[in-house]
């Protein structure tokens, strides 16, 4: 496997606040007699990703591609196997490597980097009132109860919850309201970077629209940076400035959102786009490539380009050599040997 690292292109307009460099997150598998080591699941295997300050980066891929693991590794839910996660606080000049940061530094950064989880039914403690749930990070910092109240009331107003609901328990709220509580809890400490892992996937269409609009308003109000992890490409297109496509632990394409959808460079991106259901029956029957086969087992990835068994354009080189993520024109990056030759269909803008 090549370990050639290419410097990922940064967005031109803003400074980056997160730079992931050759990040690897491997999990040991054990089984059989005496629980011997039987294999290694390379959930994240050499990821480079740059997130510019104040923008939204969408991270897409099929289940099992490692997108959630990457999101969690950034929050140091896991101890990364190797690589760097460089993070810069707003206004501060120096970079902190989250992959090696001390527990003390991480505790400080917990207010800077926050996470929104998918399921608002399991991510709230049923025995905590809304005040306790949203105010938890403040209480943990030793903020006085009266001040916590004020700040919780302020943030509840921002996310469209009535502050009178503070003493209530989660069961009294609908799915959409609970997701607002989860969002309020993430934002009460005025974070800088928010990792949203499938934040709207469990919601009904009408509630999803409310939540997406809300996330957008909050980004404008608080100048937030989002890493938006989702399997739903139409949602990702709606919210993202840049899109990163992940396949079996690696980024295979990274580009500005409008361009990646209009003209994908990687065959995998093209097949993901082709699989999005049409938005109107009038568009039925547009020709599109159907992706067959399944995502490989990350403990036994195929040699060469991991996508080659499912790729219609695979050649001998693809079966042997791992294509590095390399820069292309227009601040784009792609990991495909044949990116220049392929004419892949996107969706007309």
């Amino acid at each position: 496997m090549t370990d050639v690292m290419q410097p990922p292109a940064t967005a031109k307009t803003a400074e980056s606040c997160l730079e992931v460099r050759n990040l690897k997150m491997h999990f040991g598998q054990s089984g059989g007699f005496f629980r011997q080591k039987t294999g290694v699941v390379k959930a994240v295997d050499g990821v480079d990703l740059t997130v510019a300050d104040g923008e939204t980066v969408g991270l897409v891929g099929e289940s099992g591609c490692g997108k959630s693991t990457l999101g969690r590794a950034i929050l140091r839910v896991y101890e990364p196997t190797s690589g760097e996660i460089r993070y810069r606080r707003r206004g501060a000049g120096d970079w902190i490597d989250l992959a090696r940061a001390s527990p003390k530094t991480m505790t400080d950064l917990r207010n800077d980097i926050r996470m929104i989880f998918q399921d608002p039914f399991t991510s709230l403690n049923a025995r905590q009132t809304v005040l306790e749930a949203i105010g938890q990070p403040l209480f943990a910092r030793g903020v006085a109860r009266s001040e916590v109240r004020d700040r919780v009331a302020m943030i509840m107003g921002k996310v469209g919850l009535r502050p009178e609901f503070m003493p209530r328990y989660p069961h009294a709220f609908s799915g959409g309201e609970r997701q607002r509580i989860v969002i309020a809890r993430a934002l009460v400490v005025e974070p800088h970077l928010v990792v949203a892992d499938e934040a709207v996937s469990a919601l009904d269409v009408s509630v999803r629209a409310q939540t997406l609009n809300l996330l957008q308003d909050l980004q404008d109000d608080f100048n937030l940076t989002y890493l938006f992890i989702s399997h739903d490409l139409s949602v990702v297109k709606h919210v993202s400035d840049h899109v990163a496509v992940m396949y079996v632990g690696r980024i295979v394409e990274f580009a500005p959102s409008a361009e990646i959808f209009a003209r994908p460079l990687h065959p995998y991106t093209a097949s993901l786009i082709a699989a999005i259901p049409v938005s109107s029956p009038n568009l039925r029957g547009r020709p599109r490539a159907e992706l067959t086969g399944e995502i490989p087992d990350p403990s036994k990835p195929p040699p060469g380009c991991q996508f080659h068994p499912r790729c219609a354009f695979a050649t001998e080189a693809c079966r042997k050599d791992v294509p590095p993520l390399r820069p292309m024109a227009g601040g784009r990056q792609v990991a495909c040997h044949h990116a220049e030759e392929l004419e892949l269909a996107g969706i007309p803008a």
Partner: peptide, 23 residues
């Protein structure tokens, strides 16, 4: 209202979705 609340691929980034009020 339902049709307006779905993010469509032909919308521009950040264009607001129609919200159905309440639940």
């Amino acid at each position: 209202a339902l049709l307006g609340s779905v993010p469509r691929l032909d919308l521009q980034r950040g264009e607001r979705l129609t919200q159905i009020r309440g639940m």
